[in-house]
Design a protein around this nucleic acid. Structure first.
Lengths: 194, 194
DNA sequence: GTCTATAAATAGATAGAC
DNA sequence: GTCTATCTATTTATAGAC
């Protein structure tokens, strides 16, 4: 793995992030050493510290980037009927979860390994994302097109249900992605009476 | 924390398990040292090895015990209508999840830190528990009292949704346990058309 | 049954050569 | 920008005294 000394600064940074994401997701943040990350990239340990102040920042950056990606990519159209918006959110959430399963996994597995400061910052981002769903449900109730027993609990319940797809879905398995989305939609639609 | 040498064999074992459960749940298996566990119990490191062959067995025992506890405690009555059985399962699952949040947390967070052998054994126990729910849904569909788009996906989706309660529920918060159970029941009933 | 002491390995992080 | 070498701390686990 040792690399002949040479300049690859333009790609080493992302490679380190990719390696950290893969290894943290597979073995857990605490179980992964900086040496393992370096070996996966093909550099020596010391090199990592040219790209990240420490291991903690590596984790915090991965989690923050993922939430910011979700928040930037989710486009809602509040003028459309709430059930349509809910369907769109479901498609978005399930699709991105299946496209970035390692980030999703890390996002709710490694919160406790963040420093209190980093954890607080991430909690704010998560809350904004949850509120995107909650706003749709609130609109559905206001419009009379949904029946939701408790707004906040329902928001958390639906997100947990949908995110859970990463726990059992396997590419090439019995159900393809479209079928998974369609089935979840049947369940969600029933749950909120849409 | 150092203890005067004395015999407390009858309680030290459970205390070690309790400490390991608490620390693993809080910091993650890989992040917790045997020294920390010993300090939490109030013994020295070497003593732990009188009660467990190694750290891995401590984790595996915790996860296995929890699943065996669930399987032993869940009492189904297949002669009752499926919706009633589903309601009972929901009460059981949410209640036990809230009573043993650390075990629930560990059970789906630390699977990857089990050896392949231990992981396989636990997967079998989990599958038996999932099948308890799936059998109810299958019966409901057969009786015509439920509409379930896909048996297996619905099973996994409902368990994920209900287990998620441990992520946000706080004792003394806005909703008490009965209210939580009732709200989840509204959602589940709608989802399966019961 | 519990202790102290220690072996052997590995961790995160830094310094300085090239 | 990357390397090698190393510091300091901590890890799991064991040996043997009491």
């Amino acid at each position: 793995m040792a690399r002949t000394q040479g300049s690859k600064a333009e790609i080493t940074g992302p490679l380190i992030r990719d390696a950290a994401r893969r290894l943290f997701a597979r073995h857990g943040y605490a179980a992964v050493s900086m040496r393992q990350i370096a070996a996966e990239v093909g550099v020596q340990v010391g090199t990592l510290y040219s790209y990240t102040p420490d291991k903690q920042a590596l984790l915090a950056d991965l989690l923050r980037s993922h939430m910011e990606f979700l928040l930037a990519r989710w486009q809602d159209d509040a003028s459309r009927p709430a059930p349509e918006r809910l369907h769109a959110f479901l498609r978005f959430h399930v699709s991105t979860s299946l496209e970035h399963p390692e980030d999703v996994f890390l996002s709710y597995m490694e919160l406790r390994n963040l420093t209190p400061e980093n954890r607080r910052a991430l909690a704010l981002l998560r809350r904004r994302y949850e509120d995107a769903l909650q706003a749709i449900l609130a609109d559905g109730v206001a419009q009379g097109s949904m029946v939701v027993p408790d707004l906040r609990l329902t928001t958390m319940a639906l997100i947990a249900m949908l995110t859970g797809v990463t726990n059992w879905y396997r590419e090439g398995g019995r159900l393809d992605r479209d079928r998974v989305v369609a089935t979840y939609w049947d369940l969600v639609r029933g749950a909120v009476g849409a």
